[in-house]
Write a protein that binds this DNA or RNA. Structure first.
Lengths: 232, 232
DNA sequence: ACCTGAACACCGTTCAAGT
DNA sequence: ACCTGAACACCGTTCAAGT
């Protein structure tokens, strides 16, 4: 109160990292990775490009921060936790959906290995692996395999959206084009891919993603390390 | 023969796509993704930047072509094929090693979804899944899961190298830094990651990669679709 | 048919100068 | 402490003009 007068119009609304990240997410959501530009960003924040550098140190840091905002939100949301397996499935699906909604997160995740965003995912999955009874020596390899799969699918999803956007198609049109290209491959060299092209056309990304997770969960179970399949 | 005289010094060494791809690979190998530049490339090929556009249509096409050259070489090399499982392991390891040697391939693969390079991998893996007796309806989802895992690990590897290069460390030094960062995380929020930080320091990427492949192979087996585990 | 190289329309980043 | 905005050192891509 006593200080009200002393702070002479000191603009209370000085730029904050949170504002910058929020504006970046908007730009990324509507323009993809190419949409995030220091000039577009500074225009949206009504400043100059240099101002942003007072708060963040590089574009790649900014991208990681934006990615982390999404991942943090996603990994802290409540999730079906009736069993460790169900929890892992739900966590994986939550990441899948987040990347589906913000495709740029898929590539940003891959580009910040070992950083906060991936650690959030690793941690939550790892805790469930413990609850599943995975042996201590295998914890890292197992968690890391699940994480790599999630990042791999996420990266593919991001790339699909990016490709589709660049050619002005929507995603399912793009997958249709891939499917027809595959069905025209040489039958002697690419029998499997040709055959599977049909399945690609009618498939559901989300279902296939989950099938992969289930595959890995079955593999974990049959490794013989599981002692309890329900935690709490 | 009769035409020898008519072609008056027509420079036989006109630029070929193969030359361009070969030069691109050299640049990528020694400078990473940032090392591939139309100016650097045209200097190395002793022409102007515009000349390259006569043969290729964009930088992203060029990157995919370079990536495909590596993948084609890798997937056509002979491989231990005593059983379908052994073949899948060997194929996966071959990709792992190729990406280890050319880290930029890891990110290039992800950025060209459904294109030739990934199709080569998909095809060879898919053929082995048939030999394993995977049911037709599950062929696509299974092959796609394995592919995503391989791409995921590859992308992480590429990112690790990229990160390490940017900070002037070698890769194992970089992993050490990640490990110490992890061991300093908050014990209440990140118990799993903290604990696993030790394992990260002494781990072997290749071994962990293979553990993930084996996990998925076990999952495929226990799915009940396998009828024969040796093909020829 | 193939190449040249200047020019265009951008980038991320820096930094003196301001308040 | 925080912001401004011009300037720097690059990019990928195009295109008239050459051979």
């Amino acid at each position: 109160m006593a200080k009200k007068v002393r702070s002479i119009q000191r603009r209370e609304e000085s730029l904050s990292p949170d504002q910058i990240v929020a504006a970046s997410i908007e730009l990324l959501d509507c323009g993809g990775e190419r949409g995030l530009t220091f000039r577009a960003l500074s225009e949206r924040l009504a400043t100059g490009p240099g101002a942003i550098y007072w708060h963040i140190s590089s574009k790649s840091d900014l991208l990681t921060a934006a990615c982390d905002a999404i991942v943090a939100r996603t990994m802290s949301a409540p999730v079906d936790g009736s069993t460790p397996k169900a929890t892992i499935r739900a966590l994986a699906l939550a990441m899948f959906d987040a990347i589906d909604e913000h495709p740029w997160v898929g590539s940003a995740l891959t580009r910040a290995p070992g950083q906060l965003p991936t650690v959030r995912v690793l941690e939550r999955i790892g805790q469930q692996l413990r609850a599943l009874g995975v042996r201590a020596e295998e914890e890292w390899a197992t968690a890391s395999a699940l994480l790599s799969y999630i990042l791999g699918v996420g990266g593919q999803n991001a790339a699909n959206s990016h490709f589709a956007r660049e050619q002005g198609l929507d995603r399912s049109n793009f997958l249709n084009e891939v499917s027809t290209a595959w069905s025209q491959l040489d039958p002697d060299e690419y029998p499997f891919t040709r055959n599977v092209a049909r399945q690609l056309r009618v498939h559901d990304d989300r279902v296939d993603f989950l099938a992969g997770i289930d595959l890995m969960l079955r593999g974990i179970e049959s490794a013989g390390g599981s002692r309890s399949d329900s935690a709490s």
